[in-house]
Amino acid sequence: MPSHHHRPESEVALRVKAIESLLVEKGIVDLAALDAIIDTYEHKVGPHIGAQIVAKAWVDPEFKKRLLADGTGAISELGFTGFSSEHMVVVENTPEVHNLIVCTLCSCYPWAILGLPPTWYKSFAYRSRAVIEPRKVLQEFGLEIPEQVEVRVWDSNADLRYLVLPERPDGAEGWSEEDLATLVTRNAMIGAAKVQPPAAADSLVA
């Protein structure tokens, strides 16, 4: 294999273009398939899907019960399935327990529910540190976890994919499922953030 050391971007881009043209020429892949794959992850799937699942669990206690008992089954009730989300486990954050998801060996992540992972999730820093010093990692995200709260780290090394069900914030009583979903962030569904109350969310935007 040729060395991949510190090649300029233009060189990598040219190499990728060469491989693409060979794959297409040999009939291994159609350009339209590549476009469909890229379009799906750029425009169709993303954290808005996970946010709908979380909001439904907040307003529907029976759904929440099913979601925590059988993530895959409950999520498929909403029609959300897909690649790298075939087997889902949902873990609930409470005043007593804070859950954090990582994949130390690669960067496994529920693509169909949250989209492709952010750079920080794929970083060597996160993959190495989340398991040995989760509280320090969470501090870097601005989250101070009180000593008496249990931190549970989930290393998603196998074929199960994880989603954190964050705590419902105060100040959104009586909100519709649709409005609640707008409060739920990607990081909150990985365990790297809490869902902010609506006023705080507004002031962040302002």
Binding site: E9, V12, E20, L23, V29, I38, T119, W120, F141
Partner: peptide, 26 residues
């Protein structure tokens, strides 16, 4: 430190998107 990037795109360049899609396709 954890490299936290605000509002990052799904792919940072076209070649990244293509590498991802070609791998997915195999």
């Amino acid at each position: 430190p954890i490299p936290i990037e605000e509002n990052e795109p799904v792919f940072h360049s076209e070649w990244e998107a293509k590498v991802f899609a070609m791998s997915f396709a195999t």
